[in-house]
Amino acid sequence: MSEVLPALGQIAALVLLLALTVPLLGRFLAHTYTSDKHLAVERVTYRVLRVDPDADQHWRSYAMSVLGFSLVGILLLFGFGRLQQHLPLSLGFPALPTEGAWNTAVSFVTNTNWQWYSGEAAIGHLMQMSGLTVQNFVSAAVGMAVAAAFARGLARTSQEDSRVDGRVGNFFADLVRTVLRVLLPISLAAAFLFILFGAIQNFSGDHVMHTLTGGSQTLTGGPVASQEAIKQLGTNGGGFYNVNSAHPFENPTPFTDLIQIYLELALPFAMAWAFGLIVKDKRQGIAVGGVMALLLSIAVGLLTWAEMAAPGTAPQLAGGAMEGKETRFGEAASALFAASTTGTSTGAVNAMHDSLTAPGGGVAMFNMMLGEIAPGGVGSGLYGMLMLAVVTVFLAGLMVGRTPEYLGKKIGQREIVMVALYVLTTPVLLLIGIAAAVSFDDGPAGILNSGPHGFSEMLYAVTSAANNNGSAFGGITTGTPFWNTLLGLLMLFGRFVPMIFVLALAGRFASAKRLPAGAGTLPTHKPLFVVLLTGVALVVVGLTYVPVLFLGPVVESLS
């Protein structure tokens, strides 16, 4: 049987699953972020946190809450890493080195989940559960909260209610609701499903197994399924094991593989649907989600082609590009996973990206460079796409000579400056990061390959960190003070600087009057806008990286 049919079959199953559930999830998310009622368990949480969930925060206060909450998270997790040897269930592992503990703390709080270490060989169960998994939940919730605040900013207007002037909601209410109503229940169900299909969930340490050939192998047990569920659902990506979702204990079958891909795509698409409901125009959410789907489809198509056609001498001689891929999944499922994990901010892998074909690796990198908007991180995907929507109406406004507006909100000088700074932040960080990596001896010291592939290894690492993806190309050793510090800084600023611009813009939109749609208003729910927005994403963002891509994957493809 041709390999094309199963490849198309899994894509069809995924699309069907998403089409059936995204509208329901989207409606539930919209209700979560607009409801006035608090659940009993939420009220208890607010009392413990000593916060008033009904206080409508000014964007400044909302942003400071995001920063304060994240700072505490980093310091706590850093402490966990440095004191690991004294913690119960540490499995005898020593403390993480200082820069490694810091990198890990920043990585998990920023929803990046970049791992310089092998999970099963460095982290005990308590740190996995109380440190890393907790951050998997709350870092995802922070991103979703910011996206909800942005949607609120667009939905509100001080003209209708003067009390909303610059106010975008309550961060702690958004955070607690996201965790308790959305992430926990779905993760629980997904974890049970994974256990049912063979993922492990225990408190075992190492087991030495004797193989049929007389050798021995050490297998590490642990609370894997529970971490796996939120790892995918929250677009986190940090695996229990070093090989992540390529490990049979994390991702046992092609069915669990499909569910893992579904989980990482479901909430980002549902957030787009929820956006339409929050701004009271469902078509807006469908348009934004449509662009996400279009960009993801392009990436899936290109990556699947690259891996299945297997261009290059070595794959042609071997009869397929199976290096670094699980035989359980094959080329097509590996390509679908790679496109989804880099289109979202997940960063989990079921195949080693260093072994993707040169064009395949280039697509994965470009996917991240787009800012992970196809469909992006659980919250960052939506606000990233909405920022580009503002750029699109601005450019369209320039073309027809009208004042640009989005959902009735005028895009003035200050607004477009904020959006421009947002769009520029990640490229600036990424390009400074790769410049630093090639300028110091410590950068190339960790790479495995020379030439353009070695450059790609470094480029992938800084791209992954600056975009808060967390997937690793492999082939590069980053557990050094230089790489841990550089990538930690990229993750930190790559997460919070854009978030601040998003919240500032949300506040401005909430304060602005709503302009009535006129003859010069660009409809933002029609196919024309979908095409324009897709073009803006590819041209404005994508072109920034073309020169640096030429130095790595493009040169490698041509050689």
Binding site: R60, L67, L71, F78
Partner: peptide
């Protein structure tokens, strides 16, 4: 000692981010 350095790096980064919030919140000049 190195632990303190990394804690200080983190605090400095967040102070910078808080300053950015403050800068963006400044009222516009007409």
């Amino acid at each position: 000692m190195t632990d303190v350095v990394y804690v200080l790096i983190t605090l400095a980064a967040f102070v910078g981010l808080a300053l950015l919030v403050g800068a963006l919140d400044r009222p516009e000049k007409d």
